[in-house]
């Protein structure tokens, strides 16, 4: 229960941080950058020769 509460708190803080500080084409939290522009992600992956982890979030 404590672990779940901690995770939720971290998530809430992460989300609060994203909303407050980032442009609309990417979000970052905990040192992990998440792009929200698919085409920009493809270009970045090509430039850096990295695979892409693409998450579709289905819960509004």
């Amino acid at each position: 229960m404590k672990r779940v509460a901690t995770t939720l708190l971290l998530f809430a803080l992460a989300v609060a941080g994203l909303v407050a500080t980032t442009p609309t084409d990417h979000v970052s939290a905990g040192g992990q950058e998440w792009l929200t522009d698919y085409q920009a992600g493809l270009e970045r992956a090509r430039a850096e020769n990295k695979p892409i982890f693409l998450e579709f979030r289905c819960v509004p």
């Binding site: 979000v27 929200t36 982890f53 979030r57």
Partner: peptide
């Protein structure tokens, strides 16, 4: 995840 480009689409 550092070795990935991460994309989030909602």
């Amino acid at each position: 995840l550092k070795d990935y480009v991460c994309i989030l689409i909602d």
